[in-house]
Design a protein around this nucleic acid. Structure first.
Lengths: 218, 218
DNA sequence: ATGTAGGCATACTACTGAGTATGATGTTTT
DNA sequence: AAAACATCATACTCAGTAGTATGCCTACAT
């Protein structure tokens, strides 16, 4: 029956997600190479058999994590793009949202740091290279969203961005750096997270605002 | 003879540095785990025997790279601290210098990204944990230099830094992000590098300057 | 010239960990 | 109910790699 088939599919996807999540946690803790499939299985209270039933290889798991991580980012930022607000405000909201995503989906985001470039050189099969290129393209597209808003702010006059590529790198660097030092603490309130995200975002974006008295210099 | 002994010591240190450098290049390309000792030896046009003659283990090599990377950073920044200049200017020079170090010593800096935390959990022996703690302390000390200058700027009035810990993270994140995307190109001029370092540094630090008209708001 | 020690290559060992083969158990289909 | 299938556990294989054992060779000391 069709509904049964769909239920089975749901179940399958859920199990895959569960494995991905466990893997992300392991990768966050010990890095990609040092975590074994057995580690992931242990995190699931299961054995290798279960993992290999849903994924062909460790690389496939990493790719799935990466895709998921990018989806988290897009989902957080895209609604803001549809709002009709000044570019500086949009950029501020996007950056804040990105910071939140970094903290909320820490295992995923941390797992993929530096992973792509390293994997790219090492991966043997043609299929893997293709997937990697696709993931890199996704990331470029994502960063492109920020650069587009910066360009818009430049033409609007709400932002002053002489080099939007570099400004984008700076913004991403400051926010992505979260995965290096941020640690989830159970007693931490949502307000505290918001403060972190907003402070990081505004620190960069304040540096991109037009000088209030440009004619007064020298 | 003493002079001979010193020469031998020099030679030994040089050989160690050569191995460290080759290892850093390999680590940059393929990551820590994926590079084998044989890879490092091949980069040296040598064999494992040479590597193990100077280092007890792969971890020891990583530790040496890390120490060297931190030394590069300290050496670039400490002279600036001795100059008698306003804190905002000092911070700007320090950040720019840090950016230069990231580009100039890319293999070292890239090798140690995320490496420490991952190694910390995994390392078994007590001695290794001690070395790692020492390296983490070094890094904290280094970042402390920036925070100290920020505090000074705050009291001087040349900077406005409500949360110097977060501001420090933002600054380090934006600059350290260089190792993720910067690639050495032979045709690239020194001027181009300077532009990158200065743009990144000023983007952050401009966001930390006091508002010119704080009384005029709303 | 000859002993001696550092500098390294070669040839191992021992182990880890990715991926596979197989089968046991439950669940859905007919 | 029994056939077919999905979901896993168990028990392997085998390749790759960190680290070691050994010995040659060269340079320096005496």
């Amino acid at each position: 029956m069709a509904s049964t088939e769909r239920q089975q599919n749901n179940r399958k996807v859920e199990n895959q997600q569960e494995i991905i999540h466990a893997a992300a946690i392991c990768f966050m803790r010990h890095g990609l190479e040092k975590t074994t499939i057995d580690d992931i299985a242990r995190e699931l209270n299961a054995t290798k058999g279960r993992v290999y039933h849903y994924f062909r290889s460790k690389n496939d798991i990493f790719f799935a994590i990466h895709r998921q991580a990018m989806r988290f980012c897009f989902d957080a930022v895209q609604p803001i793009l549809k709002q009709n607000i000044p570019a500086d405000e949009a950029l501020m909201r996007m950056a804040t949202a990105h910071g939140h995503v970094m903290m909320d989906t820490l295992p995923y985001q941390r797992s993929i740091r530096l992973g792509v470039d390293i994997y790219l050189r090492g991966s043997t099969t043609e299929a893997e290279r293709e997937v990697l290129m696709e993931l890199i393209a996704l990331r470029n597209e994502y960063e492109g969203l920020y650069r587009a808003v910066m360009r818009q702010g430049q033409s609007e006059g709400t932002l002053s961005v002489p080099d939007e590529a570099l400004a984008g790198r700076a913004l991403m660097g400051a926010l992505n750096g979260l995965v290096d030092w941020y640690r989830v603490r159970p007693d931490q309130t949502q307000a505290e997270r918001s403060r972190i995200a907003q402070t990081l975002a505004s620190t960069i974006i304040n540096g991109l605002r037009p000088k209030p008295t440009p004619a007064a210099r020298s």
